[in-house]
Design a binder for these strands. Structure first.
Length: 484
RNA sequence: GCACCGUUCGUCUAGCGGUUAGGACACCGCCCUUUCACGGCGGUAGCACGGGUUCGAUUCCCGUACGGUGUACCA
């Protein structure tokens, strides 16, 4: 049987970085096995529904390079792929369970349930629906149940969990896992609003959509016995489960928005590349080899296996993410960033810069910045004559000695025929040798004159890209600023 | 509280009975050098603890500790 997996997010807000990884692993797994990757929207909780969230999920996955073979957008042979459009299916399946004695009606109000839990907590026992004393089909009897139903009373349908049974399954990542049914609650299957809970919907859909592997976050591990029981109640074979380790904050708690950025869009807005985020997040909990960090999507597809997924949660290390971003910044083609840089320039009121020139500037500066959008600011002097300078730097390098030497160096530049960096380097070097001075005496002041800044690319390389005329213009202008 | 899951440098990890416990990020030092970086070289730092099993345990088993998740008419 060919592999079919699903990413099943709830449209309740922005895509969490952990969801991105779950989606990614599902995708990698599907592609690795030549299988099918499905997007299913789990919107059975109307109270948490967020307008536009579904679109955001799709857009985010697309940005990350994660493709779906079947989805709400694309359709497919097992649709609809939005659970809110499948309520009739869940109703039918709940009825099947009612018929075969694996589910029952319950009429308790939330107040009554709260009280029950309070009592249990006070008595020091685990909070769990007590079907022997609450208001349900069993305690009320068939006639009364029928009457309440006919009368239109609010009800929900609960799963009848066996009293004493052992529930086991083999998790692809964790191995055999066993629960006792006495610890499993009589989970609500159909809510009083007519919508199913996650548990019912997920089992029914995974079955109907012929899902072979359920790859999801570890937070689902404790409710998996409910799902296993449901498969049994329906007489179905359960899919293979794989519970992924959690992504953690620095304090090792589940990664949450209270402790920093957790939404994909936040990283995207900061300028992180999809490649960076995908590569980084993939390696949080999975590693195909010990000696590499950088992988293309295709390489990940080729090497992905669940056996290589770790069991323990992984702390999201922002510093390492930044390092990886810098790596991608350096290795990506400068052409990719031209439009970003030009947009930044336009924001600064600088227009009409030649694309080729922008590429040369990006090539010059990309090792010094983390994101393309920083180039316009970091290298402003490449696009305009600086109107200010770094005061601290000036005080440090604009020395008596420098002021004496600079005019001659500038004259050298002015008369230079060849303005490429090697030629410039040789010219200045020869001059310095003659004067018994070092680069240090003259290069920093020169940097001040050309850029106004203390940091940047190599000075000769900078001047080469700038060109003779622009270099001299900047020097003259800065000289004017400095002497006022 | 109860249930389940987990535990190799600060962090991400390699390791699947015998290794000087390897790599990456971060950190520190040195080199390169026209600043900052990049790059190169080197360094600090780890198998949670206690019992077994075994000729031999980081590795297998059992406890303990610690951490995490779950415990909803949310997913």
């Amino acid at each position: 049987m060919s592999v079919r997996v699903r990413f099943a997010p709830s449209p309740t807000g922005f895509v969490h970085i952990g969801s991105l990884r779950t989606a990614l692993y599902n995708y990698l797994f599907a592609k690795h096995h030549g299988g099918v990757n499905i997007l299913r929207i789990e919107d059975t909780d109307r109270t948490r529904f967020v307008e536009g969230a579904e679109e955001e999920i799709i857009a985010t996955c697309r940005w990350a390079g994660i493709e779906f073979d079947e989805s709400t957008e694309k359709g497919g042979p097992f649709g609809p792929y939005r659970q809110s459009e499948r309520t009739e299916i869940y109703r039918e399946h709940a009825a099947m369970l009612l018929d075969n004695g694996n589910a029952y009606y319950a009429f308790d109000t939330s107040e009554e349930l709260d009280k029950m839990r309070e009592r249990q907590q006070a008595a020091g026992i685990a909070p769990k629906y007590d079907r022997s004393i609450m208001r349900n089909q069993y305690t009320l009897g068939e006639d009364e149940t029928r009457r309440l139903l006919d009368e239109g009373a609010e009800y929900c349908i609960r799963m009848k969990v066996p009293l004493h049974a052992e529930i086991s399954f083999v998790d692809s990542i964790r191995g055999p896992v066993t629960f006792q049914s006495r610890d499993v609650d009589d989970q609500i299957l159909m809510k009083s609003d007519g919508f199913p809970t996650y548990h019912l919907a997920n089992v029914v859909d995974d079955r109907l959509m012929q899902i072979t592997h359920v790859i999801r976050g570890e937070e689902w591990l404790p409710s998996t016995p409910k799902h296993v029981l449901l498969y049994q109640a329906f007489g179905w074979e359960a899919p293979q489960f794989a519970h992924l380790p959690l992504l953690l904050n620095e304090d090792r708690s589940k990664m949450s928005k209270r402790k920093g950025d957790v939404f994909v869009y936040q990283f995207r807005e900061k300028g992180f590349f999809a490649e960076t985020l995908v590569n980084f997040v993939a390696l949080l909990g999975w590693n195909p080899t010990a000696d590499r960090e950088m992988f293309t999507l295709q390489e990940m597809i080729d090497t992905f296996t669940l056996e290589k997924v770790n069991k323990a949660g992984a702390v999201f290390d922002y510093k390492k993410l930044e390092w990886m971003q810098s790596e991608y910044m350096k290795k990506s083609a400068p052409q990719n960033f031209v439009s970003v840089v030009k947009q930044e320039l336009e924001n600064k009121g600088i227009n009409g810069i030649d694309d080729d020139y922008v590429v040369r500037v990006i090539t010059l500066l990309r090792e010094r910045v983390q994101f393309p959008h920083q180039i316009a600011d970091f290298g402003n002097y490449m696009f305009e004559i600086p109107k200010s300078y770094d005061d601290e730097f000036r005080n440090k390098v604009w020395t008596e000695k420098a002021q004496q030497a600079l005019p001659e160096v500038i004259a050298l530049l002015r008369s230079a025929e060849d303005f490429n960096h090697t030629a410039l380097h040789q010219t200045v070097q020869a001059y310095l040798a003659e004067k018994k001075m070092g680069f240090k005496d003259v290069m920093n002041p020169l940097r001040l004159l050309v850029t106004g800044k203390s940091v940047g690319a190599g000075m000769f390389e900078t001047m080469e890209v700038l060109g003779k005329q622009a270099t001299l213009e900047r020097i003259d202008a800065m000289l004017g600023l400095l002497t006022h």
